[in-house]
């Protein structure tokens, strides 16, 4: 495979998907600088594994790499079995000021509500609702069955609505 072509292709993919992948990672880990690092590593991994991309869904492939790199990072940083702050590293009482400041009240509440959910729910809600992947694409990225995606999405939305109704994070900040 021609190296020049490969680099050009990575450049095109980066232009097309950089924000899409950046904010996906950000929703997973809640850390701007770290999300930038993982974004960078995602495209470098895509470059070094270029030949392994066989399909036509490059967006899904890049998201799968991004998710695996994010989990790798968390595993490396937290090989402790007990998660001491819910994955991701979001502290619901301490929103990242730069990124959150630009959100309106409803969006901030949604962000905080998401951070309170268990990982499986958050995973599926981010991909299906925020990133708008199909059920089949979401199943591919997460390595789940489509049925599992549907069940977790249903339960996740229910749990999210409950969190939003509780508004617990608001009171904690006071």
């Amino acid at each position: 495979m021609d190296q020049h072509y490969r680099k050009e292709q990575i450049g095109e993919w980066y232009n097309a998907y950089n924000n899409d992948i950046y904010n996906y990672i950000y929703f997973l880990i809640g850390d701007h600088e770290l999300a930038k690092d993982v974004l960078q590593d995602t495209f470098l991994r895509a470059y070094s594994n270029f030949e392994s991309f066989q399909g036509d869904n490059v967006r899904g492939w890049l998201f799968r790499i991004a998710r695996n790199l994010t989990i790798d990072y968390i595993r490396k940083k937290k090989p402790l079995l007990f998660l001491v702050d819910s994955f991701p590293i979001i502290h619901a009482t301490e929103p990242n000021p730069e990124q959150i400041a630009m959100l309106n009240e409803a969006e901030q509440e949604l962000y905080m509500g998401l951070s309170k959910l268990k990982r499986a729910y958050r995973d599926v809600i981010i991909l299906r609702k925020i990133k708008e992947f199909s059920i089949s694409e979401t199943a591919d990225i997460l390595g789940w069955t489509e049925n599992k995606v549907k069940v977790n999405l249903f339960r996740g939305i229910k749990a999210l609505r409950k969190e939003l109704e509780k508004g617990a994070y608001r009171h904690e900040t006071v």
Binding site: E107, I130, K131, I157, L160
Partner: peptide, 16 residues
């Protein structure tokens, strides 16, 4: 519906 709208809008707000 409003929740769905917020999902879409938050996606466009958080960016580099």
């Amino acid at each position: 519906d409003e929740l769905n709208q917020t999902f879409v809008s938050i996606n466009h707000k958080v960016k580099l």
